[in-house]
Amino acid sequence: MPVPALRIRGLRKAFPKVVAVDGVDLEVAGGEVFGLLGPNGAGKTTTLEIIEGLTTADAGEIEILGLTWERYGQEIRSRIGVQLQSTSLFNKITPREALDLYGSYYPKCRTSQDLLQLVQLEDKADAYHITLSGGQQQRLALALALVNDPEMVFLDEPTTGLDPQARRSLWDVVRRMKGEGRTVVLTTHYMDEAEALCDRLSIMDHGKVIATGTPASLIADLDLPSVVELTFEGVAPDPAAFAVRLGQAVEPRADLWEIPTSDPKALLPRLLEAAEAAAIPFSQVHIRRATLEDVFLHRTGRSLRE
């Protein structure tokens, strides 16, 4: 069996007021895109920063590419690429200069021209960093993570704060990294991003990994892999009385009710009848497959975005 690209055992990190990482085990195979999904404050970034050598753990073992930080720090640094949650560069450095400069720190590096092309930043190659938009700065950060042609890339919330179009173009870059055979570990609190990009992922909450698997298997493992939604015009009413009448759990959301089920075909007639009888003023009905969002909800009782 090949050595995993990343292996973590019993990782723990406590800050004065909170235990950020509470016994995390992870294993990432070479060449896969692995995601850490969880809400803000789940411990994703701390976990990643410990792996990257930015923070020291209180306990636990880490092996990156078969190497440990204690003995092979410099070698690990030269073989991994890192995008920090916020990459703060000097205001008046240009993307081209930044790529050349950071490239010079490594024994092997890619040309700035290649990288600029890869992240579609050729137009802005000679503009000061401070004049770039958020999306452009993120793309530059991504290019910087690739400057040493790394075997393994760590991306911390690569698309947070970006508009939908900028997110798509970043996803393309991540897919290209995988295509080039790199192992990618990324954190995100967007379940659609995790579903679209990750081969496998771990869901984190309160410093613990609560589930690990492929997106499909995580969803399939749910007892109730489908969801029926009743949408309202305006704010959804309190579903407590209706749930009793229906004999099934009903989760209120902003403008809809969600009813998880294993058999939507059987539920639907019963549901419509009950809604009719209780004079529920819903406007539309949807049936959808459960998502990672539902997995998180099911495991924690909370929504990802809460």
Partner: peptide, 13 residues
Amino acid sequence: EKGKFRRLAVTPL
């Protein structure tokens, strides 16, 4: 304080 050096910390510099 502004985190301008953090990115350098993950390089072999």
